[in-house]
């Protein structure tokens, strides 16, 4: 079955649909990146993945 000719409306709105798609993709990538950074820089965990003792966290006082 052949593809139908795109409606004139789709041609007109191509730029905004593409733009919005790119914006959403970038947003997903940014949130993913932020999650990775936040998780790998968790002040509550030591390098070996163990939770830090509460006294060490209080001394550090970070976010």
């Amino acid at each position: 079955m052949a593809f139908r000719e795109p409606h004139e409306l789709h041609k007109r709105r191509w730029s905004r649909n593409l733009g919005l798609g790119i914006v959403l993709a970038v947003f997903v990538a940014l949130v993913f990146g932020l999650t990775v950074v936040k998780v790998t820089n968790d002040p509550l965990r030591l390098d070996n993945g163990q939770l830090k003792p509460s006294s060490a966290v209080q001394q550090q006082g970070g976010n």
């Binding site: 905004r16 593409l18 733009g19």
Partner: peptide, 9 residues
């Protein structure tokens, strides 16, 4: 007139 993506920017 149809708004293009640049108009929203």
């Amino acid at each position: 007139g149809e708004a293009q993506f640049g108009d929203y920017v």
